[in-house]
């Protein structure tokens, strides 16, 4: 038996395979396809202070080995989450980490404080990197001063494990990782989607109503891998790697580059049971290469 446990802040994950925000609903959408309790953790869809309708349609376009989405932060708000979704989560033996979003520092703090008291939620992922909203979101994640301000305010209000999700739409992502670490974040996750665009040449129109959106899927993996590598070199706190992961080999690569855990995003849409297949593949890799603990993989790149 190989040891698959990893630690992110105060959370012990039974294995490093988790699912990415916005790609796995609240986990409940997937229970027909797999035993979600076998996952290391589930990152929920973004949760904001007030309900949000999200962006107009079309909200997506398929691109080579990936997709662009502009869902926006459609969700029913934190109070709805607490009343109607949270009660269902205790049936599952995995960690639910709430992706927290907002337009203002106050909104982030409000959502974080409300989640803080929920016993079954051991951590939050601060989403300062959503490219699909006019206010807040990526604005916080691409300006060092705003990033510091929101992370500091949330850190004061939130007492459990705080993960900051970084935007790749910056020149130097490690600067933002360092800010998160300095402000007391327990971990950083990266990457969120890359700002992107798709055009229908025949109609001479944008394919997405909001014109631009966020690119995800295998197309972004090499960029995500490089960023995880850069960030892991710079910070002490654990790094959660994501971006285009679709196989166990992808996960191994992210871990070698320095990730402690990973998130599977867009790949779930194509194969809703892929996360557990990936987990099996990791075990197989460890056995083949003689690793007894998955922790040994983190940063084990030979240069």
């Amino acid at each position: 038996m190989v040891d698959l446990e990893v630690k992110i802040g105060g959370i012990t994950l039974k294995n490093p395979v988790t699912t990415a925000s916005g790609c796995f609903g609240y986990g409940l959408e997937y229970t027909d396809f797999l035993d979600i309790s076998r996952l290391g953790a589930i990152f929920t869809k973004a949760t904001t202070g007030e309900p949000r309708e999200g962006n107009p349609s079309p909200r997506m376009a398929e691109t080579p080995m990936g997709m662009i989405n502009s869902v926006g932060l459609q969700n029913k708000g934190v109070d709805h989450f607490i009343e109607h979704i949270y009660p269902h989560l205790s049936a599952y033996d995995t960690h639910f980490i709430v992706n927290v979003s907002g337009s203002t520092v106050e909104e982030y703090v409000e959502v974080a404080s409300k989640i803080d008291v929920l016993e079954k939620i051991p951590g939050i992922e601060l989403n300062i990197s959503c490219p699909n909203v006019k206010e807040g979101g990526m604005v916080f994640g691409t300006d060092p001063v705003s990033a510091r301000k929101v992370i500091r305010a949330v850190r004061e209000a939130y007492h459990k494990t705080l993960i900051v999700k970084l935007s790749p739409n910056v020149t130097s992502i490690k600067d933002f990782a360092l800010i998160a670490q300095e402000e007391g974040a327990d971990s950083v996750s990266l990457i969120n989607t890359l700002l992107a665009m798709a055009i229908d040449a025949e109609r001479r129109k944008p394919l997405i109503a909001r014109i631009t959106g966020g690119l995800s899927g295998p197309a972004v993996k090499p960029i995500a891998l490089r960023m995880v590598w850069e960030v892991a070199q710079a910070v002490e706190i654990p790094v959660i790697g994501l971006g285009g992961i679709s196989s166990a080999t992808d996960v191994i690569e992210f871990m070698l580059a320095g990730a402690t855990a990973v998130q599977v995003g867009t790949a779930n849409f194509i194969d809703p049971a892929i996360s557990l297949k990936i987990l099996e593949g990791i075990i197989d890799y460890m056995e083949r290469h003689g690793f007894s603990s998955v922790k040994e993989l983190t940063g084990a790149l030979e240069i």
Partner: peptide, 14 residues
């Protein structure tokens, strides 16, 4: 409608 997942998880088909 264009669909990302088809089973309720991505909210792309709003």
């Amino acid at each position: 409608t264009l669909m990302g997942c088809g089973f309720g998880a991505c909210l792309c088909c709003a």
